[in-house]
Design a protein around this nucleic acid. Structure first.
Lengths: 335, 335
DNA sequence: ATGAAGCACGAAATGGGTTTCGAAGTTTTA
DNA sequence: TAAAACTTCGAAACCCATTTCGTGCTTCAT
């Protein structure tokens, strides 16, 4: 490995001057710069980031703390879309992305310790269970953070406009003539599950629809099976709903499967509307009508927020991203 | 930030002894160790990994070089499954995962430079186009690498048993009575596309089936659209195939869509068999019969291979992972 | 001619650890 | 009781880059 000392010896200039030339300082003559740069290139000089980070305190690394309940990790199609967008944006601004896990070098460390040990500049927190002790510790620290799909008065956060999303779903079903609308909600210990359940109920009110407790079913952690099982419960009811709004697309697909299994049809007998707009919506039969969360924008803005915070330009930001209704084939006017 | 020098002052022992106590050296008395460890914990000491890496040359970081043609990055359901499995396994062994992008701190760097600058211990290469100049540079270096879904005589590699996978697909279709079997292949400038095309042809021979050139269609980079367009070409043929083997599940779903659009049915009119066993197979209609690639095993073994190489236990490994036929609803005996 | 200003460069401190080797002090052995 | 063998500890070198501050030299204005 070539170091600035090697270049120093080779050119006769001091390591100081070499460093300055490499960093384009103005107090090095153009001639000297050229000599040093040429020699550095000849010798295949590559800077050692750890030495630099040690003294500059800036690692050009952003941590990604990702922990979700389904235990499918990167396979999660909603979160990985956000991560992809975040990654692209953060990389284009010169940062590298490092996964923050709990163990490092075999020793037990907390998330916060891990961030400090690695000297990362900031961290994006993507988690469905923000009540985790270690995450709370991180949020309460003064480490630059941005929370995805959560709210918190100590840290920056970004999430979709679920108020409007739920309203759009109910409005659409209402406009198709549906009055008996059920909701398969995401687990109440997730932020999204909670908010969407509340906003579903609020939206019902706006259309003067009654809140019927049996039409509110827990679909767990947004999984296919959760939606399937929840739908089965709904199908046992005497008075079936004519439409079901699920808090996530996977649950919607599961619900459709339960409905088909019962011998009913979607959307002829029951309309289904999902939430997320995962790729899968286009491939299932019927193609799923849903509320689209703009993962590109969420990821991009999360990057902006975090980097602004790292650069001390902005202290804290709360951002809400628009959603939209995507009409496909899983909803139909009531007969 | 507490340093070993702070602990040194607070306890009266030299920084050397503090460092040794923290690292459990045997030439520090038990009593001294206890005093130092206690004080370190009191003072909230957290080691600085950059200082340590600078001298030990071991960063406990593994790079992930991920570059695929569809430009969907982490959203790619096959690659992200491998990454997830790889991630879990390297993390459990104390390594952190860092994405290797091309730009670092705003300066243009190659993949290899990036790896060296960051001082990572090894890198996993997941790419659909291994002929990229920068990737070749990396492969030709002596940096510890493991290639996913590729083969190379200079570096370790791991991929599925495509020879058997293609045979299984053809055998299954043959056993259902199909004799006119088409293949939608993945782009020839991908490893998987190439191998599967060749092995499809080889498998035909094994069953004494003729190779018909019109039945071999390029499906591009394994996308839905690629499969859709390729299938459209097949459907223009006078003598339609009774079964189609696609080199990837996405292409299979696209193909099904084209068949339906034409007014034909799957599997009644045309049987379709995919490759990969993505989650989506379970959710499309008809549920997709496919060849399952074991992403868990690929990721896990890639981790083992790479870490063994980093630890200098093994120089180079080529590994092939078994595949299996997963029968669902998209194939049917010929009428 | 002289003091001031500007330019080009380098010595040395800094960041936070690890590791080698030597030196005391203590215990064991002959 | 002297020599040998352990224990326990620390000085100092090292890893590789950055940055402050000072120095010598040249150029300019007076």
């Amino acid at each position: 490995m070539t170091t600035i000392y090697d270049i120093s010896k080779a050119t006769g200039f001091s390591p100081t001057t070499v460093s300055k030339a490499l960093n384009d300082y103005s107090d090095v003559s153009e001639k000297t710069k050229q000599i040093i740069l040429k020699k550095a290139s000849e010798m295949g000089y590559i800077p050692n980031s750890h030495a630099r980070i040690l003294i500059t305190k800036k690692s050009w690394t952003i941590g990604i703390l990702f922990d979700e309940k389904l235990n499918i990790g990167m396979k999660h199609p909603y979160f990985n879309a956000i991560i992809e967008s975040f990654k692209e944006n953060v990389e284009s601004r010169g940062y590298d992305l490092l996964f923050i896990s709990k163990d490092l070098g075999g020793n037990r460390t907390t998330y916060l310790d891990h961030c400090i040990i690695r000297g990362i500049d900031g961290v994006i927190i993507i988690t469905s269970h923000p009540n985790n002790e270690q995450i709370i510790e991180l949020i309460n620290s003064d480490f630059p953070c941005v929370l995805i799909d959560n709210e918190c008065n100590r840290k920056s956060s970004i999430h979709s406009d679920d108020v409007r999303g739920c309203y759009l779903a109910v409005e659409y079903l209402y406009s198709l003539g549906h009055r008996k609308i059920a909701h398969i909600y995401g687990s109440k210990d997730t932020f999204a599950g909670n908010v969407r359940l509340n906003e579903f109920i609020n939206s019902l009110k706006k259309f003067n629809l009654p809140k019927i407790d049996e039409y509110l079913v827990d679909g767990g952690y947004f999984s296919f099976d959760g939606g399937y099982n929840a739908m089965k419960k709904l199908l046992e009811l005497e008075d079936l709903p004519t439409a079901v709004f699920t808090a996530g697309d996977f649950m919607a697909v599961g619900a459709i499967s339960a409905i088909k299994e019962k011998g009913l049809r979607v959307p002829e007998d029951i309309s289904i509307i999902g939430y997320d707009d995962l790729d899968i919506c286009k491939y299932v039969t019927p193609r799923l009508t849903t509320i689209k969360q703009n993962t590109d924008l969420i990821g991009k803005n999360a990057a902006d927020i975090l980097i602004n915070e790292i650069d001390k330009k902005i202290c804290r930001t709360s951002m809400i991203i628009p959603v939209e209704l995507v009409v496909r084939d899983s909803c139909k006017p009531i007969k």
